[in-house]
């Protein structure tokens, strides 16, 4: 049975299917397994980052630092591998730890000092971007064996293939769905997004959860950065500029309410796929340029935000009298 709360996600999935069908009818060669898989290959890092973003937005916050964190991860990885001579097995855990700590620190500032998440993560965005340039202002190309292997490996099944990054992204997706729906951390995140005050009065660990949410987002950004490094095989301070917007857009299009409390990790997956399919459609179309992606995403974002607003206004009216009396 399709429940009302699943409606936005269902709409997103339907939209994805519709767009994919549209492409299939119009362009030869569009309707193939490999095109579908390429969506994953090209957007694995975005998926990972957007999953972290989903948790943050569900908790009622926002994380603008993700794009910079991805860039910082590519930069640290490249610097440590190429100039520091670290082995890959040491670099990856290190950058993941840095990302998590970075996120946790932002979460702590947000929670304990009640500074708007927007402004704290904005500072985080500046900081991470700036740190990239402290390492180097130029592109550092990576020729580490493990990284090039990861970039070139094709995991085949039948005639089709995916990259190892896709596997990583899908594992993160599965884990995140589990965390969101089957753990106390996940449910507390939803509770805080629904009403932080209530969560507090219900005796839930608000402080710990909020910090962990930003830590998780930091971790996802770093992991997204690692996957992005596999994809680009370089570290550069201008990598992933504006990625935070793509991640937010994918999350919102995936049905997550920007005011917090409502959203599904799977919806975000669908949102990322829509993002990918728009890009692919534009490539297949041939004459349209890539900036159309941004415009279409903007239009979708607008549509979804207005829908959300209508959705919440309706429920506001339902419970409005209670708040009035309070």
């Amino acid at each position: 049975m399709l429940k009302r709360q699943h409606l936005p996600v269902a709409a997103t999935i339907a939209l994805f299917v519709l767009m994919f069908m549209m492409g299939s009818f119009r362009y030869t060669g569009f309707f193939s397994m490999q095109v579908l898989l390429n969506l994953l290959i090209d957007n694995a890092f975005l998926l990972i980052v957007a999953i972290g973003m989903t948790f943050v937005i569900v908790s009622g916050g926002i994380d603008l630092s993700v794009g910079s964190m991805v860039a910082l991860t590519t930069m640290m990885s490249a610097g440590l591998l190429q100039q520091g001579g670290w082995p890959a097995w040491a670099v990856i855990p290190f950058v993941l730890a840095v990302g998590s700590l970075f996120g946790a620190a932002m979460g702590a500032l947000i929670h304990y000092f009640k500074i708007q998440p927007f402004i704290v993560t904005l500072a985080g965005m500046f900081l991470a971007r700036g740190l990239c340039y402290v390492i180097s202002i130029n592109t550092i190309t990576i020729n580490n064996g493990f990284y090039t292997d990861m970039a070139q490996t094709k995991i085949r099944f039948g005639d089709n293939f995916v990259s190892p990054s896709v596997i990583i992204a899908l594992v993160v997706l599965a884990l995140a769905i589990y965390i969101a729906h089957y753990t106390r951390f996940g449910r507390t995140t939803y509770a805080i997004g629904g009403s932080e005050q209530s969560a507090l009065l219900m005796g839930l660990p608000v402080a710990r959860t909020k910090i962990m949410v930003y830590m998780f987002s930091g971790f996802c950004s770093a992991l997204g950065g690692v996957v992005f490094t596999f994809y680009m095989l370089s570290g550069y301070g201008l990598h992933a500029v504006g990625l935070e917007l793509d991640a937010i857009a994918a999350t919102v299009i995936g049905g997550t309410l920007l005011t917090g409390g409502v959203g599904y990790v799977f919806g975000t997956f669908a949102g990322v796929m829509i993002y990918g399919v728009i890009q692919t459609l534009i490539v297949f179309q041939g004459t349209l340029s890539s900036w159309w992606t941004r415009i279409i995403i903007g239009v979708l974002l607008f549509a979804f935000i207005v829908l959300q607003r209508l959705f919440t206004m309706r429920s506001d009216r339902k419970t409005g009298s209670v708040e009035k009396m309070a």
């Binding site: 500032l109 000092f113 985080g124 700036g130």
Partner: peptide, 28 residues
């Protein structure tokens, strides 16, 4: 210094200004 490092300085300034403006920080 490389001009891009300005970003780091800006980040620190943003945080400092916000912390000073934060009531909780002062109360804390």
């Amino acid at each position: 210094v490389r001009p891009e490092v300005t970003l780091v300085v800006k980040a620190v300034v943003v945080l400092a200004v916000c912390l000073i403006q934060s009531e909780s920080f002062r109360k804390a």
